[in-house]
């Protein structure tokens, strides 16, 4: 059970970064850390002791496989995370061009 708790702590670290940091790049880093912890949690749920990777090979007769369903879900989520991260970074680089800073307090105060 300790791994679930550590995974949750990793999520909280990312949440802390998103809520308190005032730098756009740091916010993106916090969001990706939260994403990583969710991926890890899904993979942890599907694990079975002494289970094999879910690939059928002729010579092995054992049918004790790790759960393939969470892995399939995480596989799509990783690529979606890359897409959303890239979108955030595109917005960040555009903001830097316009306001010459990554600090969101200054971006707020300038009002257009």
């Amino acid at each position: 059970m300790i791994v679930y708790l550590l995974c949750f702590i990793l999520f909280l670290v990312g949440l802390f970064g998103v809520l308190t940091k005032r730098n756009v790049i740091k916010i993106v880093i916090g969001l990706s850390i939260m994403e990583f912890s969710i991926f890890l949690f899904f993979a942890l749920i599907g694990y079975i002791d002494e289970g094999l990777a879910p690939i059928i090979v002729q010579n092995i007769s054992s049918t004790k496989f790790v759960d393939p369903l969470p892995q399939a879900m995480v596989l799509t989520a990783i690529v979606i995370g890359l897409a959303t991260n890239s979108m955030l970074l595109a917005i960040a680089i555009r903001l830097y061009k316009k306001y010459n800073t990554f600090d969101i307090r200054k971006i707020n105060s300038l009002k257009g």
């Binding site: 990777a53 690939i55 596989l75 799509t76 990783i78 690529v79």
Partner: peptide
């Protein structure tokens, strides 16, 4: 469909 990987990994 035979080994680890697939469209996502290979495309990347």
């Amino acid at each position: 469909h035979l080994t680890p990987g697939g469209g996502f990994a290979g495309g990347a």
